[in-house]
Structure formats: structure tokens, C-alpha cells
Amino acid sequence: MLGIGCGSGNRTFVLKNRFKDADIIGVDYSENMLEKAKNKLSRYDF
């Protein structure tokens, strides 16, 4: 599953909790937001 426009990862977290067996990758145009997401959710793929 691809989370386009994931921002700081809040929705990515919700998706992963809802679809526990899914591989979810967060994508965003802003490198700053991706860094925030990576720092907050280091176990996820961004």
C-alpha cells in the first residue's frame, strides 16, 4: 500500500494499525516532512 502525501506519518500510522499485514510505504514531496515521519515512526518505510 502506498501512502501518497504522508506528511509527518500520522495517517501512515493509522493505516498500519488498520491493515496490520500490509506493507505500507509513505511518500511525500517534502523532505522535511519525511524526516519528521522517519524520526517519529522509525519502523516504517518512507
Results as ranks from 00 to 15, higher is better:
Val27Pro: 00
Ile4Asp: 04
Lys36Tyr: 10
Asn39Ala: 11
Gly9Asn: 07
Arg11Leu: 06
Val27Lys: 05
Lys38Glu: 14
Gly7His: 10
Lys36Asp: 11
Glu31Met: 12
Ala22Trp: 11
Ala37Val: 09
Phe13Val: 06
Leu15Arg: 06
Glu31Gly: 15
Ile24Pro: 01
Tyr29Trp: 05
Leu34Tyr: 04
Asn32Asp: 14
Phe13Trp: 10
Phe13Ala: 05
Leu34Asn: 09
Ala22Ile: 00
Lys38Ala: 15
Ala37Met: 06
Asp28Ala: 13
Leu15Ala: 12
Gly7Asp: 10
Glu35Pro: 01
Tyr44Phe: 15
Met33Pro: 02
Leu15Ile: 11
Arg43Trp: 03
Gly7Glu: 05
Leu15Glu: 04
Asn32Leu: 10
Ser30Trp: 07
Arg43Ser: 15
Cys6His: 03
Arg43Ala: 13
Asn32Met: 12
Ile4Arg: 08
Phe46Thr: 07
Asp28His: 13
Arg43Asp: 14
Ser42Tyr: 04
Asn17Gly: 11
Cys6Pro: 03
Tyr29Asp: 01
Gly9Gln: 06
Met33Tyr: 11
Ala22Met: 07
Arg18Glu: 12
Arg11Met: 08
Gly9Phe: 04
Ala37Ser: 15
Thr12Gln: 10
Thr12Pro: 00
Ile4Tyr: 11
Ser30Leu: 09
Lys36Cys: 11
Leu15Ser: 03
Asp28Cys: 14
Tyr29Phe: 08
Lys40Ile: 10
Glu31Phe: 02
Lys40Met: 13
Ile25Ala: 02
Asp45Pro: 09
Leu2Asn: 00
Gly7Met: 04
Asn32Ser: 14
Asn39Glu: 13
Glu31Leu: 14
Asp28Asn: 13
Glu31Arg: 11
Asp23Ala: 01
Val27Glu: 05
Phe13Ser: 04
Ile24Asp: 00
Leu34Met: 02
Ile4Ala: 14
Gly5Lys: 07
Ala22Pro: 01
Asn32Pro: 05
Glu35Cys: 04
Asp21Leu: 14
Ser8Arg: 03
Arg43Thr: 14
Thr12Trp: 00
Asn17Leu: 08
Gly26Gln: 08
Phe46Pro: 02
Val14Tyr: 08
Arg18Ala: 09
Lys16Asp: 03
Asn17Ile: 06
Gly9Trp: 02
Met33Thr: 04
Ser8Thr: 01
Asp23Gln: 09
Gly7Ala: 14
Phe13Asn: 10
Leu41Asp: 04
Thr12Val: 09
Leu34Pro: 07
Gly3Glu: 14
Phe13Asp: 10
Val14Asp: 08
Asp28Gln: 13
Asn10Arg: 14
Ala37Gly: 04
Leu2Gln: 01
Asp23Cys: 01
Ile4Cys: 12
Glu35Asn: 13
Glu35Met: 08
Val27Ile: 11
Leu41Trp: 14
Val27Met: 12
Ser30Arg: 10
Thr12Phe: 01
Cys6Leu: 00
Lys38Ser: 15
Met33Ile: 03
Arg18Lys: 15
Gly9Arg: 11
Ser8Phe: 01
Leu15His: 12
Ser42Trp: 05
Gly26Lys: 04
Val27Asp: 00
Lys38Met: 12
Ser42His: 13
Arg11Val: 08
Gly26Cys: 01
Glu31Lys: 13
Phe19Val: 10
Met33Leu: 15
Phe13Arg: 13
Met1Gly: 08
